[in-house]
């Protein structure tokens, strides 16, 4: 499937690359599509290009990280992509194949401001933003918004929940539910599976279509478990029908990483760009505009923005992060357990 799409993407990249290649250094960035792409171009790439007139950033949205990975694998001997923005779990997979180059503080000084957990696989992949898993609700049908992850098991939501959990969403929900049950996710996830089975009878669909936001907007379900950034955006742009209720027990973010592609022809320009993308200034702007949690430790968020990203002060204090390289080793096993021990029975 990906072969043909990748090839056409390649051709497109080559074409756009050639058109821009007069005097500026072209820098091909492949990343997420949709609102993310819009915001990233507006709030990260545009200011960067203004500060670096000699670099021309060409942003190519990719449908998902799996497709980006396919593209990078296909052109590993002669990459046209210089910088890739992908999910942390996919990045770790790509590092196993040696697709990304190691970064260092000499050429990317802002690395020093990233917390240790964000510098993954020996500085090959750097986390730059986190999009929290949250509960969204239909403000017209739900008068009393849920405040806790355990509210999902409330019988009043029977047949009223959309939960796509057989992917990163489920992998993130497991440690959250585990923590509520007082267990360590590295030891056992049985408590989380049990908790999932407690609210599973309330779930109407495990495969909301077209996505986990639209089913709440349309009123098809009352609650949905999905990402905060997009929910906040839809809350603001779609008449406030979607409400976001960050549970008090805290959450975990879907972590996005920035990566320098091994063998990139414009590695210097790429490092300059990565350094800017990791800066406190860029991350603060992106957090304010798109409600993705920043990673850089120097970023200070206003209380309003912090609330919209992480929820109440109680939830902010309970915010968690994961040992992603470790998670990568159990990722498919956990999804398998969700599929076989929860979804298949409900």
């Amino acid at each position: 499937m990906t072969n043909r799409t990748s090839l056409s993407l390649l051709a497109l990249l080559a074409a756009t690359g050639a058109a821009h290649a007069q005097d500026k250094t072209p820098l091909n960035v492949v990343g997420f599509s949709g609102v993310f792409a819009e915001n990233y171009e507006k709030f990260i790439i545009a200011p960067f290009e203004a500060a670096h007139p000699d670099i021309d950033v060409i942003y190519q949205p990719s449908k998902n990280s799996a497709e980006t990975l396919a593209l990078l694998t296909l052109q590993r001997s002669d990459p046209t992509v210089d910088v890739a923005l992908i999910d942390v779990s996919v990045a770790i997979k790509a590092n196993g194949e040696g697709l990304f180059a190691t970064l260092d503080e000499a050429s990317v000084p802002n690395l020093a401001d990233q917390p240790a957990w964000a510098r993954i696989d020996g500085d090959k992949s750097i986390a730059f933003s986190q999009d929290n898993l949250t509960i969204l609700y239909n403000t017209e049908t739900v008068s009393e918004p849920p405040t806790s992850w355990t509210d999902l098991a409330d019988p009043k939501y029977k047949g009223k929940i959309a939960a796509k959990l057989a992917d990163t969403r489920g992998v993130i929900l497991i440690p959250i539910l585990n923590k509520i049950a007082g267990a360590d996710y590295k030891e056992t996830i049985d408590p989380a599976i049990e908790a999932l089975n407690q609210f599973a009878p309330n779930v109407s669909t495990w495969e909301p279509a077209p996505d986990c936001y639209a089913v709440v907007q349309s009123g098809e379900v009352d609650l949905s478990i999905c990402w905060n950034g997009r929910s906040q955006y839809l809350h603001d742009t779609q008449g406030g029908i979607i409400g976001v209720s960050a549970p008090k027990e805290g959450s975990i973010g879907q972590t996005n990483t920035i990566n320098l592609v091994e063998g990139s022809a414009h590695a210097e320009a790429a490092k300059t760009f990565i350094n800017y993308a990791l800066s406190a200034e860029a991350q603060a702007t992106f957090a304010e505009k798109s409600f993705y949690g920043p990673v850089n430790t120097k970023v200070e968020l206003s209380p309003e923005v912090a609330t919209r990203i992480y929820g109440s002060p109680e939830a902010q204090a309970a915010q968690m992060s994961l040992d992603w390289p470790w998670i990568a080793t159990v990722y498919s096993e956990w999804i398998q357990r969700i599929n076989r021990e929860v979804i298949a029975f409900n």
Partner: peptide, 15 residues
Amino acid sequence: GGRVFVLGTEVFQEA
């Protein structure tokens, strides 16, 4: 709704 596990959906999931 994610409850129908057939070979087609499993291939997609693994890929």
